[in-house]
Simulated assay, not measured.
Amino acid sequence: MPEARLRWPLSAVLVTGPSMSPTLRHGDAVLVRRGGRAVRPGDVVVAVFRSRPDLLVVKRAVRPADGGWWLYGDNDLVTDDSRAYGVADVIGRVVARYWPRPGRLPSRRL
């Protein structure tokens, strides 16, 4: 079960790869909240693609789709998102980056 990967209401996740650049970079550490307010378009989330249940990803929520979410990375040159893998199930929302540049993440209107 994907939710087991984030056992606590607030968990740390390490970003790998360039798909969320410039918002998040490879090596950034973020805090992810399970529960709380509902996901909205523009939120940065941690999710699992239904077609790749073994892969935990950090992406931006674009729109609800088929009981899950359609997700995109912020880096348009990398398409390892819903364009390649389809609908994802969101596990939690990224609420802040805590390392190496602490701060809240900018929201994007979609």
Results as ranks from 00 to 15, higher is better:
residue 1 M to T: 13
residue 1 M to G: 09
residue 2 P to S: 10
residue 2 P to F: 06
residue 3 E to G: 05
residue 3 E to Q: 14
residue 4 A to I: 15
residue 4 A to K: 15
residue 5 R to L: 14
residue 8 W to Q: 15
residue 8 W to L: 15
residue 9 P to D: 15
residue 10 L to T: 10
residue 10 L to N: 13
residue 11 S to M: 11
residue 11 S to K: 14
residue 11 S to C: 15
residue 12 A to F: 15
residue 15 V to Q: 12
residue 15 V to I: 15
residue 16 T to V: 14
residue 17 G to A: 10
residue 17 G to T: 13
residue 18 P to C: 13
residue 19 S to Y: 07
residue 20 M to D: 12
residue 20 M to Q: 13
residue 20 M to C: 06
residue 21 S to M: 12
residue 22 P to W: 10
residue 23 T to G: 07
residue 24 L to Y: 05
residue 27 G to W: 11
residue 27 G to R: 10
residue 28 D to G: 02
residue 29 A to G: 11
residue 30 V to L: 07
residue 32 V to S: 03
residue 32 V to K: 01
residue 32 V to D: 00
residue 34 R to Q: 05
residue 36 G to C: 08
residue 36 G to I: 12
residue 37 R to L: 08
residue 38 A to E: 14
residue 38 A to N: 11
residue 38 A to Q: 14
residue 39 V to F: 01
residue 40 R to K: 12
residue 41 P to N: 09
residue 41 P to Y: 08
residue 42 G to Q: 07
residue 44 V to Y: 03
residue 45 V to I: 08
residue 46 V to Q: 04
residue 46 V to I: 10
residue 46 V to L: 06
residue 49 F to H: 07
residue 49 F to A: 01
residue 50 R to G: 01
residue 50 R to N: 04
residue 51 S to C: 05
residue 52 R to Y: 01
residue 53 P to L: 06
residue 54 D to R: 10
residue 54 D to N: 12
residue 54 D to V: 04
residue 55 L to S: 10
residue 55 L to C: 09
residue 55 L to V: 14
residue 56 L to W: 00
residue 57 V to C: 03
residue 57 V to T: 11
residue 59 K to L: 05
residue 59 K to G: 01
residue 59 K to N: 03
residue 60 R to D: 02
residue 61 A to K: 00
residue 61 A to G: 00
residue 61 A to E: 02
residue 61 A to H: 00
residue 64 P to G: 08
residue 65 A to S: 09
residue 66 D to C: 05
residue 66 D to W: 03
residue 67 G to K: 11
residue 68 G to M: 02
residue 69 W to P: 00
residue 69 W to F: 00
residue 71 L to F: 00
residue 73 G to H: 06
residue 75 N to Q: 04
residue 76 D to H: 11
residue 76 D to N: 11
residue 77 L to Q: 11
residue 78 V to S: 11
residue 79 T to L: 07
residue 79 T to W: 00
residue 81 D to E: 12
residue 81 D to Y: 05
residue 83 R to I: 09
residue 83 R to W: 04
residue 83 R to V: 09
residue 84 A to M: 13
residue 84 A to G: 02
residue 85 Y to D: 10
residue 86 G to L: 07
residue 86 G to F: 06
residue 88 A to G: 04
residue 89 D to G: 06
residue 90 V to L: 01
residue 90 V to T: 07
residue 91 I to P: 03
residue 93 R to Q: 08
residue 93 R to V: 05
residue 95 V to P: 03
residue 95 V to H: 05
residue 96 A to P: 03
residue 101 R to K: 08
residue 102 P to Q: 13
residue 102 P to T: 11
residue 103 G to M: 08
residue 103 G to E: 12
residue 104 R to N: 07
residue 106 P to G: 10
residue 107 S to E: 12
residue 107 S to P: 04
residue 108 R to A: 11
residue 109 R to V: 13
residue 109 R to H: 13
residue 109 R to C: 09
residue 110 L to K: 08
residue 110 L to Y: 13
